[in-house]
C-alpha cells in the first residue's frame, strides 16, 4: 500500500506539470495570435487616452515574459485575470457558467453509465441474437449521430409536435418570476431543493431532460460497445467456465464475476467523455440556449478574450487531469492486480 501512495504522489506531481505546460502553451498561443486586447477592453468608441490607460492597466506595455510571470503569480493567488469583454473577474464568470454545464453533463453521464452497462451486458449475454443486433444498431447510432441534429430533432418532437417539454433554457419565465431560485451552489436542481422550492425543482428537471438526453447519446453508445465487447471476451475466460462448471449461481457469474471484469474500460471511456463535455458540449448548449461553459468558451474564442480563454483552458485541463487521476484510483480500487503491482 505504501507503494500505491508514492505512486499517487508521483501522479499528482505529473498532473501539476501537465497543467503548467498547458497554461504556458495556451498563454503563448493566445499572445501570438494577432489581436488588440486594449482595443477590445475599451471598446471601439474610446479615446486615445483611455486606450493608453488600458494598456498600462492590462500590463501590455511590459515585455511578454513579464506578462507571463505576472499571470502565473496571479494564478497562484487564485486570480485568473479580468475578462476583456465584460471587465469582470474570469474566475467569477467561470463559476457562474460551470454549474450549468456540470448539471447536464453529470446527469448525462450517469444516464450513460446505467443504460450503457445494461445494454452492453444484455447484448453480450444475447450475443448474435436479435436483441444483440438491435442494441448494436442503437449503440452505433449513439456514437455516430451528430448531436446538433439530434438536439433539433428532440426539440421538434417533444416541444414542436408533442408540446410536453420546454424548448430551451434552464428555467421557464414563470418560475423565474414567481418561484425564483436563490443561488447557493449554482446547480438549480440542488438549489431549488435546498430552497424547498418544489415547483422550481420540477421545472428544472423538465428543462434538463432534452439536453441531458442528447448529451448522453454519445457516451451511451460508447459504454454499451465497451461493456459488450469486454463482456464477450470475459465470458470466454477460463474463470467463467470454471465458475459455471462448479455450480456458481448464474446471477453471480454474469452480474458479479463477469461484469466487474468488464467494467473498468467502460469507466475509463466514460471519464474521458465526461471531461470532454465540460467545454465540448457547446453545440448542445447553443441549441438549448443553455448558459454553460461551452457557450462561454466559444464566445471567448470568437472575440479573442484571452484571459477568458486561458481561464477556461485551465479549468478544462484541471477536469481532465483530475478525472484521469480519479479513474486510476478507481481502477486500483476495482482491480487488485493494479493495486498490487
Amino acid at each position: 500500500m505504501a507503494s500505491f501512495k508514492s505512486y499517487l504522489v508521483r501522479r499528482i506531481v505529473l498532473a501539476l506539470l501537465v497543467l503548467y505546460f498547458v497554461i504556458t502553451i495556451t498563454f503563448i498561443l493566445s499572445h501570438v495570435v494577432p489581436s488588440d486586447p486594449a482595443e477590445l477592453y475599451v471598446g471601439p468608441k474610446a479615446t486615445k487616452e483611455q486606450r493608453e490607460k488600458a494598456i498600462i492597466e492590462l500590463g501590455l506595455d511590459k515585455p511578454l515574459y513579464v506578462q507571463y510571470i505576472n499571470y502565473i503569480f496571479g494564478l497562484l493567488k487564485g486570480d485568473l485575470g479580468t475578462s476583456l469583454r465584460a471587465h469582470t473577474p474570469v474566475l467569477h464568470d467561470i463559476l457562474v457558467y460551470l454549474p450549468a454545464t456540470l448539471e447536464i453533463v453529470v446527469i448525462a453521464n450517469i444516464i450513460a453509465l446505467f443504460i450503457g452497462i445494461l445494454f452492453g451486458t444484455f447484448s453480450a449475454l444475447k450475443k448474435d441474437h436479435l436483441e444483440d443486433h438491435l442494441i448494436r444498431f442503437i449503440s452505433v447510432g449513439g456514437v455516430s449521430i451528430p448531436s446538433f441534429w439530434f438536439a433539433l430533432l428532440t426539440q421538434l418532437i417533444f416541444f414542436g409536435i408533442l408540446g410536453i417539454l420546454p424548448l430551451d433554457g434552464r428555467l421557464s419565465t414563470e418560475t423565474q418570476l414567481f418561484n425564483p431560485i436563490k443561488t447557493i451552489t449554482g446547480f438549480y436542481t440542488v438549489d431549488s431543493l435546498l430552497n424547498g422550492n418544489f415547483p422550481a425543482f420540477l421545472d428544472c428537471l423538465r428543462h434538463l431532460i432534452l439536453p441531458a438526453t442528447v448529451l448522453a447519446t454519445y457516451p451511451i453508445g460508447l459504454v454499451t460497445r465497451m461493456v459488450r465487447s469486454m463482456m464477450v471476451e470475459v465470458l470466454n475466460e477460463n474463470y467463467i467456465r470454471f465458475a459455471k462448471a462448479n455450480g456458481f449461481r448464474e446471477n453471480l457469474i454474469y452480474y458479479k464475476y463477469a461484469l466487474r471484469n468488464a467494467l473498468t474500460p467502460a469507466l475509463m471511456a466514460l471519464g474521458l467523455s465526461f471531461a470532454y463535455s465540460i467545454t465540448g458540449a457547446f453545440l448542445v448548449e447553443v441549441i438549448f440556449s443553455w448558459p454553460g461553459l461551452g457557450t462561454y468558451t466559444v464566445n471567448a474564442i470568437l472575440e479573442n478574450d484571452y484571459p477568458s480563454i486561458l481561464g477556461v483552458t485551465i479549468v478544462g485541463t484541471i477536469f481532465y487531469v483530475a478525472i484521469n487521476l480519479l479513474l486510476d484510483i478507481l481502477q486500483a480500487y476495482i482491480d487488485p492486480r493494479v493495486r498490487l503491482q
Binding site: 474463470y239 456458481f248 466487474r260 476495482i334
Partner: peptide, 24 residues
C-alpha cells in the same frame, strides 16, 4: 443441468492461474 454442476459433478481445469477470478 445447472443444479447438477457443483453439487453432483464438478470440475477443475488445467491452468489454475486462470481458473480463479483475478478481481475477487
Amino acid at each position: 443441468m445447472a443444479k447438477i454442476r457443483g453439487r453432483q459433478i464438478s470440475m477443475i481445469l488445467q491452468d489454475p492461474t486462470s481458473s480463479l477470478n483475478p478481481m475477487f
